[in-house]
């Protein structure tokens, strides 16, 4: 009896793990299906016209029908978001390193980085649109909202280096550059990636906010502009279709950055540790 028991136990644990994994994948899908069905029912039962609430099917049809417009808009928004993110990464890490090297620079500039962060970007966007070409203004908005989490987290990471490791480096006569490259930056990497994950979502938000503030048509008008435009024309199905694309972009970005984090940290960081079965 005891032999059977010991042999069955791991198998049962395995089963449970597998069931857990399926549950995690299937539950949100089931919730989505239920939500869409409920949405469809509401539209059918109340006989709602499409300009009040389009049915899910109509939204899907619009997505395909307007694909040419939406695809171009999506590419525009994606490009701005990525550029904003890259600039945020460069600016955030660059500033954090600068702050880390010089107290004086940190004390003089950090407060203004905070000011930039706490001032709502919706309020800054119109001003930027006056002074900068539209493309650049949109990019600047994406950058403003996205760079701060990178800066704040990288600064924290650079400052939370193990004191004894720092002592060891100085004992072996390491230069400032060596300490930065071989000690501080690797130690800050997990924090940096945490900041990047937040910045990804924020960059998209910044781009969208700026586009909405810009509000004027142009060759390079993105998804947010299409949403505003559809609103004016009461083209509600297209509004929904563009919104779905925006969400999908955000989700894809989050998944991509999570994967990147996992890839870079899986060998050594506690956060990537797989629980022992």
């Amino acid at each position: 009896m005891s032999r059977a028991g010991t042999r069955a136990a791991p198998a049962r644990a395995d089963d449970q793990l597998r069931r857990e994994r399926w549950l995690r994948v299937l539950s949100p899908i089931a919730a989505l299906v239920l939500g869409v069905v409920a949405w469809d029912l509401v539209v059918r039962v109340n006989v709602l016209p499409p300009y009040v609430l389009p049915s899910p099917l109509l939204v899907l049809q619009t997505l395909f029908a307007d694909w040419a417009i939406l695809w171009r808009a999506l590419l525009t928004t994606l490009a701005i978001t990525f550029e904003g993110l890259i600039l945020a990464l460069a600016g955030g890490i660059g500033l954090a390193v600068l702050f880390n090297q010089s107290r004086a620079v940190e004390y003089s500039l950090y407060p203004y980085a905070v000011v930039l962060q706490v001032t709502p970007v919706v309020a800054i966007a119109p001003l930027l649109l006056i002074y900068l070409p539209q493309q650049v203004a949109v990019l600047a908005c994406a950058w403003i909202v996205a760079f701060f989490p990178v800066l704040a987290n990288t600064t924290l990471g650079l400052n939370s280096v193990d004191r004894n490791l720092l002592a060891l480096f100085s004992l072996y006569g390491a230069s400032r550059w060596r300490i930065l490259v071989n000690l501080k930056l690797p130690a800050a990497l997990p924090h940096m990636l945490g900041g990047l994950k937040i910045a990804g979502g924020l960059s998209l938000i910044g781009a969208v906010v700026a586009e909405i503030a810009a509000g004027s048509a142009g060759a390079g008008s993105g998804l947010a502009y299409r949403i505003v435009e559809s609103g004016y024309r009461l083209n509600i199905p297209r509004m929904f279709a563009a919104l779905i694309l925006l969400s999908a972009t955000g989700i894809a970005m989050f998944i991509a950055l999570s994967a990147l984090t996992h890839l870079l940290l899986r060998r050594w960081h506690e956060s990537a540790l797989v629980e022992e079965g």
């Binding site: 193990d162 004894n164 490791l165 002592a167 060891l168 480096f169 004992l171 072996y172 006569g173 390491a174 060596r178 071989n182 000690l183 690797p186 130690a187 990497l189 060998r267 050594w268 960081h269």
Partner: peptide, 27 residues
Amino acid sequence: IGFVFQEPTLMPWANVFDNAYLPFRLA
């Protein structure tokens, strides 16, 4: 001077070889 701290004081992102190689790398 060689120093062994009370805690292991290893770089978690580097493997065992690279940790022991550190003094040479810095030299």
